[in-house]
């Protein structure tokens, strides 16, 4: 049996969610949505540079940059009225931004199911988060060969 290990930063986030009662997990998700950094001017002024993620139930756009040394930077845009989608973006930003391309690519696709949110959030929304991760990985593969 193969075990997929999470990067310690993602593992910390997963542990944080799973370590609190179910009722408090939405509050934690809300904090991630509030901590999502705003877009830098180069994207805020050029939304055409962002990739839409239609799998999310609410509008979400993302951009991926890979430095010369293979460090990954992630940028997300989601409306304030869509806090769940923002929260998922916030988790990926907090967990993956600054990791190496290989570390991001090694993130298991089913990471969204390891946060203990299945009973609180509809499966369609969790699939939206998985779709964000899949699109991030595809962009990294395109940029970093």
């Amino acid at each position: 049996m193969t075990t997929t290990t999470l990067h310690p930063r993602l593992q910390d986030i997963a542990d944080e969610f799973n370590g609190i009662p179910s009722a408090e997990r939405l509050q934690l998700l809300l904090e991630f949505s509030q901590d999502l950094p705003p877009l830098p001017a180069r994207y805020a002024e050029h939304p055409d540079l962002l990739e839409p993620v239609p799998e999310c139930q609410s509008p979400l756009f993302l951009a991926v940059e890979v430095d010369q040394d293979a460090t990954v930077h992630l940028f997300f845009d989601a409306p304030r009225e869509a806090p769940t989608t923002r929260g998922f973006a916030g988790i990926l930003q907090a967990g993956l931004d600054g990791l190496s391309a290989d570390e991001v690519l090694a993130t298991p696709g089913e990471f969204s199911s390891q946060l203990g949110l299945q009973d609180l959030v509809s499966p369609l929304r969790l699939r939206g988060m998985a779709a964000m991760l899949a699109r991030i990985k595809r962009q990294i593969r395109e940029r970093h060969r």
């Binding site: 509050q27 949505s33 009225e81 806090p83």
Partner: peptide, 9 residues
Amino acid sequence: DEDVLLYET
């Protein structure tokens, strides 16, 4: 709401 977190905001 549709969004499960909107009430909390």
